[in-house]
């Protein structure tokens, strides 16, 4: 028996812990991830605390100093209402950083659920769901979003919260198909594994297998998909507000500001340039973040 006892001896310590430490170390050494995370964190900080940092409030009107160029007092100049562009640019992160992450969470939730069901049941269920997803996927995102948001506009008039909710839901739903596809592919390969067979063999129900058995093992693609969708959501939310279907004036939202102030671009380019740069930096930051996470997790 001594042999078997020896045979059952401890395996050397933890591959899993090593792997986790390694992932963190790699992330902290990836310039892509670090730059992306830096930019995103900067904007999150600004969305929360910009009013404590800037001299002026984003909504403070000063009728005597409209369209002033860059100066020591107004680093980024002022707009046609005499509002400080720096304060507005920094505060403009707020609306987009509420809408985009929530929309990303929604599309992960819907897409994840659909992907799990579709990939787990296979057969006709899969076929029907995925064809429906294909239809949704073929819609041009912006056009579809405009249609839905305007359809709801009469109900949400006067309530910025409700309006934002509609935008979040619409973006979330429109981003569901690509997420559903990715998750489905991961589920399909996972469900054939023997531990799933073993679960079926002890009479586990389908929801349990999907949520408790499969879901924890497809977290990597879910995380990657989430960060990728975040970048797209920022972009889409800004586009919608640029077109006038998002938050309404006097919000310092970037898309909205660019849209409204482009009429004065020839005399006061700074009113458009700085919000545009801010928007671009957040989109780039989110994409860099996504790229870094994807590279490290897919190793």
């Amino acid at each position: 028996m001594t042999f078997d006892e020896l045979a059952a001896q401890a395996a050397p310590p933890s591959e899993r812990v090593l792997r986790r430490r390694y992932v963190v170390r790699r992330l902290l050494r990836s310039p892509t991830f670090l730059v992306g995370a830096g930019i995103v964190l900067f904007w999150i900080f600004m969305a929360l605390f910009s009013t404590h940092v800037t001299r002026f409030g984003p909504l403070d009107i000063d009728p005597y100093h409209t369209l002033k160029a860059l100066s020591r007092l107004h680093w980024f100049g002022t707009d046609e209402n005499g509002r400080d562009v720096l304060a507005r640019t920094l505060a403009g992160a707020r609306s987009v950083l509420v809408v985009a992450p929530l929309a990303a969470v929604f599309c992960l939730f819907f897409g994840g659920t659909i992907g799990l069901i579709s990939g787990y049941y296979k057969g006709y269920t899969d076929e029907i769901i995925m064809r429906f997803v294909d239809v949704l996927l073929s819609l041009p995102v912006i056009v579809a979003a405009i249609v839905v948001v305007s359809a709801f506009s009469s109900h949400t008039q006067g309530s910025p919260g409700a309006q934002a909710a509609v935008v979040i839901l619409v973006i979330g739903i429109l981003f569901t198909p690509p997420v559903a596809r990715t998750i489905r592919a991961a589920v399909v390969s996972e469900r054939e594994k023997e531990y799933v067979q073993a679960a079926r063999l002890r009479g586990e129900r389908a929801p349990f297998i999907m949520v408790a058995e499969i879901l924890p093992n497809i977290l990597a693609p879910i995380i990657v998909e989430g960060t990728v969708r975040l970048g797209y959501a920022v972009f889409t939310a800004a586009t919608l507000s640029f077109l006038g279907f998002g938050v309404q004036a006097p919000s310092p939202d970037w898309g909205l500001t660019i849209s409204l102030d482009r009429t004065v671009i020839q005399v006061a380019w700074w009113t458009v340039l700085f919000p545009a740069l801010a928007l671009a930096s957040l989109v780039v930051g989110a994409n860099l973040l996504a790229d870094g996470v994807r590279k490290v997790l897919s190793e």
Partner: peptide, 28 residues
């Protein structure tokens, strides 16, 4: 089908699979 067998028969008929790397749920 395994779904119609009831707990008594599930208990009685079990299986040991081939691949040690996928036979256990890595998350558990």
């Amino acid at each position: 089908s395994v779904a119609q067998r009831g707990s008594e028969r599930l208990r009685a008929i079990q299986m040991v699979f081939q691949n040690p790397d996928s036979t256990l749920n890595p998350a558990w």
